[in-house]
Design a protein around this nucleic acid. Sequence first.
DNA 1: TTGGTTAGTGATTGGACACTAACTTATCCG
DNA 2: CGGATAAGTTAGTGTCCAATCACTAACCAA
Lengths: 192, 192
Amino acid sequence: MVRMSAEERRESVIRAAMSEFARGGYYGTSTEAIAKRVGVSQPYLFRLFPSKKAIFLAASARCLEDTRKVFEKASEGLEGEAALHAMATAYSRLIADDPDKLQMQLQTYVAVAAAEAVGDHEFGEMVRAGWLEIWEAAHLPLGADARETTTFMAFGMLINVLAAMGYPAEHRVWEGLQLPARPPEGPEPTRA
Amino acid sequence: MVRMSAEERRESVIRAAMSEFARGGYYGTSTEAIAKRVGVSQPYLFRLFPSKKAIFLAASARCLEDTRKVFEKASEGLEGEAALHAMATAYSRLIADDPDKLQMQLQTYVAVAAAEAVGDHEFGEMVRAGWLEIWEAAHLPLGADARETTTFMAFGMLINVLAAMGYPAEHRVWEGLQLPARPPEGPEPTRA
DNA sequence: TTGGTTAGTGATTGGACACTAACTTATCCG
DNA sequence: CGGATAAGTTAGTGTCCAATCACTAACCAA
């Protein structure tokens, strides 16, 4: 039996939860599945977190944080077009290498909407704050132009959805995402 | 007791399912909830549809169809910028008036990804085909330019997600979505 | 080594849920 | 009218699942 500190365990629970919730969403994922992935008994999760909801929330927050870090790292020391290209490439690589993260993003969006619909604004506030940080992580390197940033994020969202739907890389719908001569806008479509 | 033909009932089941699945997704929605909304006993759903999955599939398909129709109707007889503006306005109105349809769209995307992940490609094919029809409904009126269409769809997706997250209309993240010279809301087309 | 704290488990419970089976009632038509 | 058919119901089954409880095993400091 390998013992860990509660903090370390919580960490692995969050990682496991990100993968599991990514596939099944909140309701489609059992705490048992998460526990199994962690290698720990199911009841023990409830000693590390107060509820299933809390686990989901932690996973969502982590997902946003990870994504923001990708943008920050990619654009470090760059600005304007160079930053844009770097961030686009980094993001494309992220969703190619780690589809779970893409999935978890989408799961987070639908969960927020559901929470808001029943009057729970706490989850929403966290997600809006987290997403805004991502927005800002792109905004500054891109020259702090709202329209530019919005366009960048818009292309990113389209890429998310096309990838989620499973269109093969050579499908027509990806066409308009090819960069022309140089990279003027949008997360770059070098899909692996 | 009001009796309907099975066909009519199926129709109301699909409508009800769109609303319920929109909120809770596949796993978060019970057939009981759908039945209640229809005003019919829960087991009766299984005489109208073979399974819960079939109901979800029908709801997804209908959602895509409805969305396509919105574009088609809006752009009827128009082309170029006029068509673009008409479609953008119509779509903005759609997601403002009927948030369920927006939600159901997102639910469809995550469900497709989940289905693909477990090797079920049937649902994915239907959704990809349906979404392509939407894409084409925008493509032709916009002058059959792939980049133009892609940009249009990208802005639409960003709007979807911002709306789902519940950012209030006056929030900064909406800024770059204002049309410059032309009238207000909507997926914006030509970025100079 | 002993006493306290922290990590972790097995058993269980109460509720929800998809789906089946068997029965009832409205409606249409000859 | 009368009976066939289609619309609908009530009751029930097996399964799954979040959360609780009472307990055991490892670590640690004096």
